[in-house]
């Protein structure tokens, strides 16, 4: 870990400005991802701006009938919120499937969206990695890839986004609210928030330098059975091999998003029309163009069978 200076932000805009002006500055929220990466010198900020004191820790009803979740709301509190549990069950289920109780007590909404990949080569600074060190190459391709991505991958990077929460938010059509250093706000649909790796796997989101997340807004509740199914080798405390967030209405129509398969939560709206026709049909469109390795091609079958299980369970 490199030495760094630290300050507590007093307003979102001033925090944004401080980071915008300093390429080596970063926000810190729960610190559960950033500090680990700093210890390994995968992240090397020289200045940290603590955003915990900005009062962004509330969950409020919106005029449109949705919910506005402050960027600093802890994963534990979000999962436990009565409105979330009642109306956005897929989100609660995704949250509690993630990490551990202790981590969720610290982890924040914004931090969770911005957590970085768990590709093992990204974590070993002796190994080339385009995401960690642009242009150095991708060690994972041709190496150990069981956990890695199968859709939307590129020749530069096949990493996945590890978040569970984000997959549920993608199914819910959430919007990420931000403020830039000049005070200008943006509402970024979650579909556009995370990027595919392409030639620039180190650029992971639509955020500009210094742009701060203030909230995530959920539209009015979506009716149907809310399911989050996270598949992993051990029963808890592991990242998803594949996860499926689904909302299924009694007639079999609904929404589905996947985790553990791509550089972003993976959803193809056009595939959803096929939900009444079964998982295989949905997956043909949802995973169209999948590019697998020998080690991770099982994820195609796994995603399909996981969805099949959900469709079976939510029948009638």
């Amino acid at each position: 870990m490199r030495q760094f200076t630290y300050e507590r932000a007093t307003s979102a805009a001033s925090a944004a400005a401080a980071v915008a002006d300093n390429g080596n500055a970063k926000f810190i929220a729960g610190g559960t991802n950033l500090l680990d990466l700093m210890k390994l010198e995968i992240e090397t900020p020289t200045h940290l701006i603590d955003v915990n004191g900005l009062g962004l820790d509330k969950i409020e009803a919106t005029e449109k009938g949705g919910l506005k979740i402050g960027a600093l709301v802890r994963n534990t509190d979000l999962a436990a919120d009565e409105r979330v549990r009642r109306d956005y069950g897929v989100l609660t289920r995704a949250l509690v499937a993630g990490a551990s109780g202790q981590l969720r007590n610290k982890a924040t909404t914004a931090g969770n969206l911005l957590q970085r990949t768990r590709c093992p080569y990204f974590y070993d600074t002796n190994q080339p990695c385009n995401k960690r060190q642009p242009g150095s190459g991708c060690s994972a391709i041709g190496g150990v890839t069981r956990q890695l991505g199968i859709v939307g991958v590129s020749d530069q990077c096949i990493a996945t986004h590890p978040s569970d929460m984000a997959v549920a938010m993608r199914a819910l059509d959430a919007t990420v609210e931000t403020v830039k250093s000049d005070g200008v706000t943006r509402s970024i649909p979650i579909a556009d928030f995370h990027r595919l790796p392409g030639d620039t796997p180190h650029i992971e989101t639509a955020l500009d330098q210094g742009e701060i997340i203030t909230a995530v807004t959920l539209p009015p509740p979506v009716a149907g059975r809310h399911v989050y199914r996270k598949v992993r080798d051990r029963a808890s405390y592991a990242f998803a091999l594949v996860s499926v967030a689904a909302i299924v209405r009694p007639d079999g129509t609904g929404r589905v998003a996947l985790g553990g398969v791509a550089h972003k939560p993976w959803r193809v709206e056009a595939a959803e029309a096929d939900m009444p026709n079964g998982a295989a049909t949905v997956m043909r469109k949802l995973l169209d163009g999948a590019r697998t390795t020998e080690e991770n091609e099982f994820k195609v079958t796994l995603a399909e069978r996981t969805l099949a299980g959900i469709l079976e369970e939510t029948k009638g």
């Binding site: 093992p120 974590y123 070993d124 060690s139 041709g142 080798d233 051990r234 029963a235 405390y237």
Partner: peptide
């Protein structure tokens, strides 16, 4: 679950932490 994944090109165990090298947890 337990397996040290070998990178056969570069000659090392890739999953060299307890996130990557899984052992049973209570829930198992």
């Amino acid at each position: 679950m337990e397996e040290l994944a070998v990178d056969k090109r570069r000659g090392f165990f890739v999953n060299h932490d307890l996130a990557g090298y899984e052992v049973p947890v209570h829930a198992d």
